[in-house]
């Protein structure tokens, strides 16, 4: 892992060839973001109120401030 990071740092520091090297790194991070978001959505699937319609309809707040 450390070696991989080392490699990546080296490629990004060679400025001219960056365009060629950059897409895999972008894809890595976008895949990581997607995996994180998928995990969040899995959790929301678990905790979301089963009867969403009633939950929303019954939430009424009158009076305040």
């Amino acid at each position: 892992m450390a070696e991989q990071e080392q490699t990546r740092r080296t490629t990004t520091s060679t400025t001219e060839s960056q365009d060629v090297e950059a897409p895999p790194a972008d894809r890595d991070s976008s895949e990581q973001l997607k995996a994180e978001l998928d995990d969040i959505l899995d959790q929301i699937d678990q905790v979301l109120e089963e009867n969403a319609e009633d939950f929303v309809r019954n939430y009424v707040q009158k009076g305040g401030e």
């Binding site: 929301i44 905790v47 979301l48 939950f55």
Partner: peptide, 22 residues
């Protein structure tokens, strides 16, 4: 309604239902 429930549950303080904490 599921999305409207999510909108509300984002602010839900019950740890087992909170969306903001997730």
């Amino acid at each position: 309604p599921k999305l409207r429930a999510m909108d509300l549950q984002y602010h839900d303080l019950r740890p087992e239902r909170s969306i903001a904490s997730r």
